[in-house]
Every structure is written in structure tokens, then in C-alpha cells.
Computed example of a mutant assay.
Amino acid sequence: MRYQTHIITSVAAGAYLTTVTDAPFTFTFVGGIIVGSLIPDIDEPNSYIGRRSFGIAKLIKKAFGHRGLTHSLLAWMCFSLIYYFYPNHFTYGLCAGYLFHIAGDFFSKRGVPLFSPIWKKKFKFLITYETGKIGEKLIMLAAIFAIGYLVYTNQLYTQLFVQAP
């Protein structure tokens, strides 16, 4: 999945999350989702975040490969410790965005190693898309409509400027 699609699908998932939990749809939460949705691709030097990582992406790719450890549930759980130690809207969004990224790649043809490093097998959903092809573009279009629908019908726009406690 390309970075734009990761961002848009993650914001859509975050908007939905705010309708079923007490998570607030604030700029800090959405900002956290956007950043978090990019972080798993730190294992690819040519990714959006990898090109801005000052060489860290090359080291991670050499150690774990692309769609390796950073795309696992273990990595997400370790990353989520940031919310445990610094609980706020932004870090909640970071953790959610990271998980949404893994979920997005779970639906791709290549899948993700959910249980890495214990089990390197890549898992994927029964119905998949190919990165950069029409399927991904349709997913992005559906996510854009989902954001508009969720924000409008649930009046999430009223929460955007709420201050974090």
C-alpha cells in the first residue's frame, strides 16, 4: 500500500474508532494516526518515511527486511508502550495508526508477518489487492468517502478543536 493510501485508510479507521469508543476526533489524535500509519515502513529506505529517516531505514531493512519485524504484532505492542508511558491523544493516535498500517498491508497480496520474529510466515486476507493497482485506488476512494460520511453524520468536526485534558 502506498503511503497516501495508508494515511487515508488509517484516518477513516480512526474516524470509525471514535464513533464506537470514547476516543476523541481531535487534530492531535488524527495527527498521531497519520504519523503512526507511516512508521511501519521505516524498514524501507525508499518509503515516504524511509527517505526522511537519516539512514535509519537502511539499517532496519538490512537487519529485518521490508515487511519484516516492523509489520508484526510484537513490534506494534512494543511501539504501543509509548502510550502506556505517555498517555495522550497523540500517542493514542500513533498506536492506532501503526496498527491500521499493519491491517492495511494484511489485505495486500504480499501479506504481513504478524507473528515475527517467532514465526516468519506472512499472513493475508482471502481477498487481496496489489499495491499501486486499481484495487488499491478503489480502497483509497472508498476510504475518502468513509471519512466524509463518518465526519458528517457523527459531527466529528465539532471535536477537532477540543483541547486534550
Results as ranks from 00 to 15, higher is better:
1 M>K: 02
2 R>V: 08
8 I>R: 00
8 I>L: 14
11 V>W: 13
14 G>E: 06
14 G>P: 07
17 L>T: 09
19 T>H: 03
20 V>S: 01
22 D>K: 09
23 A>I: 11
24 P>C: 08
26 T>S: 15
26 T>H: 11
27 F>G: 13
27 F>M: 05
28 T>G: 00
29 F>Q: 06
29 F>S: 08
30 V>H: 10
32 G>T: 06
34 I>G: 10
37 S>I: 00
37 S>W: 01
39 I>G: 00
40 P>C: 02
42 I>S: 09
44 E>S: 11
46 N>G: 12
50 G>W: 09
52 R>W: 05
53 S>P: 11
53 S>M: 02
55 G>P: 00
55 G>L: 05
56 I>D: 01
58 K>E: 03
58 K>Q: 03
61 K>P: 08
62 K>F: 11
63 A>C: 01
64 F>H: 07
65 G>L: 05
65 G>C: 06
66 H>S: 07
66 H>M: 06
67 R>G: 00
69 L>G: 01
77 M>I: 14
82 I>G: 03
87 P>C: 09
87 P>Q: 15
88 N>T: 07
92 Y>I: 04
95 C>T: 15
101 H>C: 04
101 H>F: 06
103 A>L: 10
103 A>F: 15
103 A>D: 02
108 S>R: 04
108 S>Q: 02
109 K>E: 11
111 G>E: 02
112 V>M: 06
114 L>W: 10
115 F>R: 06
115 F>W: 13
115 F>C: 09
116 S>N: 15
116 S>E: 15
116 S>I: 02
117 P>R: 08
118 I>S: 05
119 W>P: 01
119 W>R: 02
123 F>M: 14
124 K>H: 15
127 I>T: 12
128 T>L: 07
129 Y>A: 02
129 Y>P: 04
129 Y>T: 11
131 T>V: 14
132 G>K: 08
133 K>C: 05
137 K>E: 07
139 I>A: 15
141 L>G: 11
141 L>C: 08
141 L>Q: 10
147 I>L: 02
148 G>H: 04
148 G>I: 12
149 Y>G: 03
153 T>S: 09
155 Q>T: 03
155 Q>H: 13
159 Q>W: 11
160 L>Q: 00
160 L>E: 04
161 F>T: 12
162 V>C: 01
162 V>E: 08
164 A>M: 06
164 A>D: 06
165 P>C: 01
